[in-house]
Design a protein around this nucleic acid. Structure first.
Lengths: 208, 208
DNA sequence: GTCTATATGCGGATAGAC
DNA sequence: GTCTATCCGCATATAGAC
């Protein structure tokens, strides 16, 4: 249930991991933030890895759910919405990609799963672009669709990390809509003229 | 001098940081790898932060040197070479971008410098693309040149991290030439027909 | 379920002898 | 310059009382 102690712990950990990064958040700090003793925290989760694993599992499930619903995408505005939702999920669990190298070396099992997840993302993105090409929304050869898929997954995976390196954005929350617009610009050269209207609308909205 | 103990320490640390990641390498492990006592290591560098700072400084200098030499780039093959050299430097100091979130939160001073470095990269990339546009190598409006520059810096900064998420590359070293080719595909839709020959050559080389 | 108290180890950093 | 020995603090994890 939503109000259970387990759930409170997971929500608090998610917030702390996102705010300070996985390596900086110790079990003591988690317990303190919850107003709870370290011993009590240990009663609910034996190890920190278990907490991280539970959160990672939710992240996986949310992303995979989004992958399942990409089949119906056959227009640029659908694609924008899909990217928007994706950036929302990645932002909600931003600690995952933010500290991926650390996560991978500290918890190899999760590193494996992250690779597998990336592989699924690539497959989904590729069939997405093949669909868009078939629908005439983009004009791209099979090979170009493959490269577009790679660029798209690369961007959704790493954009939030990169954004923190750009001066002047300190602290401010990421706008998923803006990130989605940026990802869309990658494919803009391939968008057929009939589908260009939505891109122009987005451009005026985000560059204006 | 090259053989000094200081230099040996820095080289060993660079190798260890690159191989295992900044958070995973303790001062004890560094000393052990050097066949030296922790006390002796402390004699040469008072803190781990000092070691990291020295290495980061070298990274900065190498990248800034590359930025200085982009003025003469007026053809696609020059650009490919410039990207190649850039990926070599970033690969040589790959621990920097690999654990950027950790580095930033552990050593805020270096986080600041990383942001400043990114800002310089963006400026250099933008003037690079403006030059390429003026030379007729690419066809892009001022606004498109700005976006191309952002994509290019994003890619050079984050590509190596992302690559580790792609299954099947485990352990293998990154090919800077391949990474440069990938970065070039970002601009391929904007390349004018007269300059396309080199891109086709690269495509046959890396996708064949 | 929650607490206090504690074991154990590691990481960064030092002191002081050689 | 290099060593041994050590301090301190923190992090994970646990035991056992309430």
């Amino acid at each position: 249930m939503a109000g259970s102690t387990r759930e409170r712990i997971l929500q608090t950990c998610l917030a702390l991991f996102n705010a300070h990064g996985l390596p900086a958040v110790s079990t003591h700090k988690i317990a303190a933030e919850l107003g709870m003793s370290p011993g009590n925290l240990h009663y609910h989760f034996k190890t920190k890895e278990q907490i991280v694993t539970w959160l990672f599992r939710r992240f996986e499930q949310k992303l995979e759910a989004l992958n399942s619903s990409t089949a119906g995408i056959a227009a640029v505005d659908d694609l924008w919405l899909a990217l928007h939702l994706r950036f929302e999920v990645i932002g909600e669990y931003r600690f995952v990609y933010r500290d991926m190298a650390f996560l991978s070396s500290e918890y190899p099992a999760l590193g494996q799963r992250a690779q597998a997840l990336t592989a699924l993302e690539l497959v989904a993105a590729q069939s997405l672009f093949e669909g868009l090409a078939a629908a005439g929304v983009v004009q791209a050869s099979a090979e170009q669709a493959r490269i577009l898929a790679l660029q798209m997954v690369f961007t959704t995976t790493c954009w939030l990390s990169f954004e923190r390196l750009i001066p002047g954005r300190d602290g401010r929350d990421t706008d998923p809509g803006l990130a989605a617009f940026y990802a869309l610009t990658l494919i803009s050269p391939y968008v057929s003229s009939e589908s260009r209207a939505y891109l122009d609308y987005l451009k005026s909205k985000y560059l204006g």
